[in-house]
Nucleic acid binder design. Structure first.
Lengths: 189, 189
DNA sequence: GTCTATAAGGCGATAGAC
DNA sequence: GTCTATCGCCTTATAGAC
């Protein structure tokens, strides 16, 4: 079945979210999916190969999710950023991509590639929003769009880290709200 | 020798920084420190026991480092926050404590305890700075001190995550600088 | 306190039958 | 395509001599 391959990818996506890369074993993927060892090594070269496929798929999902939120939101730049930052997020579950970044094995360039694609794409998306907002005169030109974009992504990722450390599930929402307040002060009309 | 115990702790602190908890093995600690297996299990119950001692020690170091920076800095609240946020930080190396937070084993409450102590202590320190600044009229009262403190810690931690993902070592410095610009706008005199 | 030897178990992966 | 059996390696320890 072609479904086996997809099932393995979907299961790996869940485990990468729950446990990251290093702590997830092929056996765990097999146990949860019900797929056998032979099938797994037929469809993929090994753990790393499956993880890359899962991370690429996750990247596509998350970028599509972002684009949909932005497309659905009519309003100015702040309304768009707000809509995205206010999506429900649970610090204790971690970010579906950011969760993986700190794993030691992720110094490997092949494992790094999908992470880099995700974060640099999101950076471009936010840069475009802030840049256009400045062009139309709706955002003060004190900060570079690129810098604001990088800060936005960092606030989000940092909220997950701090929230997990202090075991407060709503931390990401809290820090996003504070950051949005500061962004609102940069709005010019 | 009593030095053996300290040597094991110092070596574990380095490895926790480089590889986190799950990916660090007792054998790695022994190889790097030159201590033998027998000595290790004489001084500590096991890996977890050593890791907790190392994390508690690291927490003490980092809080002492913070307090020293603040004490050395004469100037207003913004000068103090700037002095701390502008310490040299390398995203590719990771935060000495934040590096560990995402490890799956760190759901264990004993491993979590030192992390929680570090982040909640830092949160209190920043809250005190922002709170006093508001009392003295040097900081606008739009934001709660607690919220600003949580945001400050998140910016720092998020910078490490994003920086590692896009492989830009100076990301933490960049986002701190952007954040400081936004804080400067909240200064009232 | 420190040493070496050993152990049970999981890891990532392969072999070869069906 | 999928199965079961097996592999060599590493992990976290423990045992018992010195």
């Amino acid at each position: 079945m072609a479904a086996t391959r997809e099932l393995l990818i979907d299961t790996m996506k869940l485990l990468l979210w729950e446990r990251g890369y290093d702590a997830t074993s092929p056996n765990q993927v097999l146990e949860r999916s019900g797929v056998g060892k032979g099938s797994f090594y037929h469809h993929f070269k090994g753990k790393k190969d499956l993880a890359i496929a899962a991370m690429e798929s996750r990247t596509d999902d998350l970028i599509a999710e972002f684009d949909q939120i932005i497309a659905q939101t009519d309003g100015d730049w702040l309304a768009q950023v707000s809509a995205y930052l206010r999506l429900p997020r649970h610090a204790l579950k971690g970010c579906r991509m950011g969760r993986i970044v700190q794993d030691p094995s992720v110094e490997d360039e092949q494992l790094l590639a999908p992470l880099e694609r995700y974060f640099s794409t999101m950076h471009k998306r936010f840069t475009a929003i802030y840049s256009e907002a400045q062009s139309s005169g709706a955002l003060v030109k004190i900060h570079k769009p690129e810098a604001l974009a990088k800060l936005t992504l960092s606030v989000l990722q940092g909220g997950f880290v701090v929230g997990r450390a202090v075991q407060q599930d709503d931390t990401v929402g809290d820090v996003c709200e504070s950051f949005l307040d500061m962004l609102a002060a940069l709005k010019t009309n």
